[in-house]
Nucleic acid binder design. Structure first.
Lengths: 209, 209, 209, 209
DNA sequence: CATGAATGAGGCTTCATTCAT
DNA sequence: AATGAATGAAGCCTCATTCAT
């Protein structure tokens, strides 16, 4: 403790303050229509200040996703190694849903990222941060399938393909349910739909079931 | 016969010419970074001319998706009514993949649309065109599941949820494979991954299998 | 009779048709916001056709005013030479009001012309057509004052100044009443206000009254 | 004292700087042909900066008129209450002429405003600012006539009509003299013409004179 | 004569980013 | 560190005018 640490803390607090505001504005307006000015106002700071903490709008956006990816990775690493693969699959479902709930708007952000304009206009550094974390996370998931195949409880299919399906299905269902909610404000069926998706997936991937 | 029809044809040809150019530019740059100027140049027209055929940039973008949705709907309507539900599911897989192949960059466009900025800033008319077609298409898919459940070959789950899963999985896998291709230019694994996804899905949804 | 004359007539009819449409659109939208396209549509012609009858948008606008000026001049020339100057003044009032009623929206147009953007961006030819007619008309009015001064019924002031006052007052009151009507749709008080204006003017200009 | 006030002043100074430039350009080119770019250049600022002080081109234009109206109102409020109505009329003449001289090009601007395109395409807020001030000013003038009628020195005519005549005559004469000057660069006769106009008006409105 | 599709210059406006204070 | 005024590039879109049919 002492002044330098306090400064450090203060700085980190500001960063968070900005990220919170950015999240709010980005999920309201989308990346393009969101303005730095508005994010700054929402963070009760001036627009110039944002540039002391983030190099540009892009980095601000990506930082939001990074937090989610970090959380995802952390959670994946904490899946109990002792579980059977099918149990791990169920744990995975919980992890993914938790990741979504951890911060729904940012999760959607992140999937948008994979699928939008922005990816095409991202600086290499930002890109590699994203892809690095993503790769690690997917490797973890892939590991579950490898294990399941090896020890015979899962059908013998390429683990990377299986991983892509899990990830695609998860992000696709999240985005699609989100779109539906945007278009016609009905109830939100995300949770039961994901539940069912994993039920089907498990039955589909289990051997001799 | 004669001049009026020729004019009509000529006009339609121009429209197509513009759409082709728009597709090219949009899929290269993404919606935001694409410029009307560039699309016009690519269509070998002046920028003003584009506005004789499309009200604005947004409508141009959406029109691309509409074509795909129309194709999707048409194909869904041509799935043989006499097929057994599991066979229809396989036919559905072919349809979806064909829809993708019909115009990959536009299909991706369309999924972007569901999941992006643009949806939030779309004119009501455009929006209702999109949602109308989408609803029709999904109703068709939903019908397959209803039938399968009714006659006992599929597990008894909510057909809308099943439909959302198919659609989410399809779009999610397409987008994700596309992202992967953008990030590291490897081979394109979309086809086998979708094959596998449907294999799992079918096993997951088949009763007593 | 004969084809050439018929052609001529037909051509003139078209011209009028266009002028009518132009008047309608100009007074609805104002010069700037009115578009050639809209005038053409209103005349049930194509935009290109308008250019067969008028060199450009500007000329179309000016032509409207010219008609009014011609009518004004004609009416001024028909003021009975035998009248006493004060009677002529009253006749002038009637002429001016008739000119306004002859085509209110065009009269307003014309006064706008004197006082707007357009004057500054008018081609020299157009300009000289306008100014020529205006000068003739004002000379006529000026003549009334000269006569009145000469024969002693009017106060001895510079006739041109008196003319400017009549003209300025007339156009100013018309424009101002028009503005008032645009802003708050009350009753139209133009007629009685002009009546009163001329009453004051006459009392002001009459000698020994 | 101190920094905030200085900032405030600085900001106001900028506003004025822009208004001065706008006045210059608008009166040279007219509203339509004037460009923001040119105004900015003339103010030695970038075009974007103008939008920090004025919402758009229209508001910039209207702001010029507002200043004149405010000056008019202030001057009208300072007409000595103790004067006799005919003296007030003469004071009014001075006020109006001073208002013109306060800023001739802007005064002309303002009369253009009453009579142009722009009125039809003005935002409601701007409109109500303009009309509010105008109404106040005209009420003041109307008050002079009311008083004169009440105490018997003026003929008994509707004070609003009299006011409209004064205002119409003033703006009409100003615009018309201005037009004449634009068309043929002679001497400027505005002052004597207005002088004469008020002389006639006074004689016209005085009772038993 | 009439058409109306095509042109393309040009304007307004927004907004990420910088920098003097 | 924080501010927020200023920048200026860049884009969308309109519309008067032309011209091939």
């Amino acid at each position: 403790m002492g002044i330098p640490e306090r400064k450090q803390k203060e700085k980190e607090r500001r960063r968070q303050q900005i990220l919170v505001a950015a999240k709010r504005v980005f999920s309201e307006k989308g990346f393009t229509k969101a303005t730095i000015e508005e994010i700054a106002k929402s963070a009760e700071l001036s627009s110039g200040t944002l540039y002391l903490y983030f190099r540009n709008k892009e980095e601000l956006w990506v930082s939001l996703s990074l937090r989610v990816l970090q959380y995802l990775l952390m959670r994946l690493e904490h899946i109990d190694d002792g579980l059977e693969p099918p149990e791990k699959l169920r744990a995975l479902k919980e992890v993914l849903y938790d990741v979504y709930e951890f911060d729904p708007s940012v999760a959607i952000n992140m999937f948008h990222l994979q699928s939008s304009d922005i990816l095409k206009n991202l600086s290499p550094e930002m890109l590699s941060e994203i892809t690095g974390l993503t790769r690690q996370a997917l490797d973890k998931i892939s590991g579950i399938f490898q294990e399941g195949i090896r020890e015979g409880s899962f059908v013998d299919r390429h683990p990377v393909a299986l991983t892509d399906i899990v990830w695609g299905m998860f992000s696709g269902v999240v985005l699609w349910e989100n779109s539906k909610n945007l278009l016609n404000r009905e109830r939100d069926y995300l949770r039961p739909t994901l539940e069912l998706a994993f039920e089907l997936l498990e039955r589909g991937v289990r051997k001799g079931s």
